[in-house]
């Protein structure tokens, strides 16, 4: 594991078109991921976690919105300064993505061998028998049983878990330095989910892959992530090593979320519940976005955006409470 981060995101801002104006779906997001590390990106729907992934890959259609600020440095190259042709050279090859829905991320009319092969050919320039071997090896590396036969299968002939493994084989074709996993297990059954998570961990151990794992499930976070970033209304409100975050959450939102999730091994009479609902991006409250739902909110929280407080080594949170409410 090298110490220089393979992916460094600094002050990323993405604005989406909305009505006549625009809203900030990603607002000043910064984080880094080292080789061999898994960073969890946790948030609710609309918190901006998927938009962050698409922004990093520069995959936001111009009709939807655009990245208006920040840097995304992949292995020393700022992706935001590249032209589209150069970006295409990195996308897939050095940084790739697996998506949530294994049904729609594969082309239904192409055999899976051809789909994996297309990526390998493009990224590694292999042809003929070498390409065929690489396809079978790629499928085998994702523990797809009988890969020699499966290359000629169509996506609909595979189960959801197998399709997701094919998606992973395509994503690993580069092989990439960074893998973005956007809720890849949400559509899968529990036993299949843990098989896929175990696979990703093994691949990471073998290749030193850096993984950005997007999820809303704290069970996944606790199981496979090294560090966690919690997003709320487009911003990262807290970022910490995983054990530290669970043991010592500093942002009221993180704390409340953790308390509101039932646990498999612990009985509680009543779940802690966060009142209200996440704000709409085109109707964000002044000050801290979480203030209207926060048990600790005071006047200053509703007036000015909260400062970022270093809460420990590698641990920061943006909250007025941690700053003593500005006193």
């Amino acid at each position: 594991m090298s110490s220089a981060p393979v992916l460094k995101v600094e002050g990323l801002v993405t604005e989406l078109r909305s009505g006549g104006g625009s809203v900030r779906a990603v607002d000043d997001v910064s984080f880094e991921i080292n080789a061999g590390e898994t960073l969890g990106l946790v948030g609710e729907s609309g918190s901006g976690k998927s938009m962050t992934c698409l922004s990093i890959l520069r995959l936001i259609p111009s009709s939807v919105g655009r990245v208006t600020g920040g840097r995304v440095v992949l292995e020393g190259t700022d992706l935001m300064t590249l032209d589209e042709a150069q970006m295409r050279h990195h996308r897939g090859r050095r940084i790739s993505i697996i998506l949530q829905d294994p049904m729609t991320s594969l082309n239904p009319v192409l055999r899976i061998g051809d789909q994996v092969g297309e990526a390998i050919k493009l990224y590694r320039g292999l042809e003929g028998p070498a390409l065929r071997d690489a396809i079978v090896d790629g499928l085998r590396a994702m523990r797809i049983p009988a890969p020699e036969q499966r290359v000629s299968a169509y996506p609909h002939e595979l189960s959801g878990g197998m399709r997701q493994r094919v998606g992973a084989a395509i994503a690993m074709a580069g092989p990439p330095a960074v893998l973005i996993a956007d809720e890849p297990t949400t559509a899968l059954d529990a036993t299949v989910q843990s098989q896929l998570l175990a696979l990703l961990k093994d691949v990471q151990r073998e290749t030193g892959l850096a993984i950005l794992f997007v999820t809303h499930d704290f069970g996944i976070v606790a199981t496979i992530c090294d560090r966690v970033a919690v997003m709320y209304a487009g911003r990262i409100v807290e970022l910490a090593p995983v054990a530290e975050l669970f043991a010592n959450p500093r942002h009221p939102y993180t704390e409340a979320l953790l308390r509101s999730v039932p646990d498999l091994d612990v009985d509680v009479e009543r779940l802690y519940s966060i009142e209200g609902q996440p704000p709409a991006l085109d109707d964000l409250p002044a000050g801290c976005s979480f203030a209207p739902r926060c048990a600790y909110a005071r006047d200053v929280c509703r007036e000015r955006g909260p400062p970022r407080i270093e809460a420990g080594p590698l641990h920061h949170a943006s909250c007025w409470k941690l700053a003593g409410y500005g006193d």
Binding site: G46, G48, Q100
Partner: peptide, 17 residues
């Protein structure tokens, strides 16, 4: 991916810009 629920931005329902 953009049309999926998880990726879609949350906008105020029923409120006029």
């Amino acid at each position: 991916a953009l049309s999926k629920g998880s990726g879609a931005p949350r906008l105020a329902a029923g409120k006029g810009h």
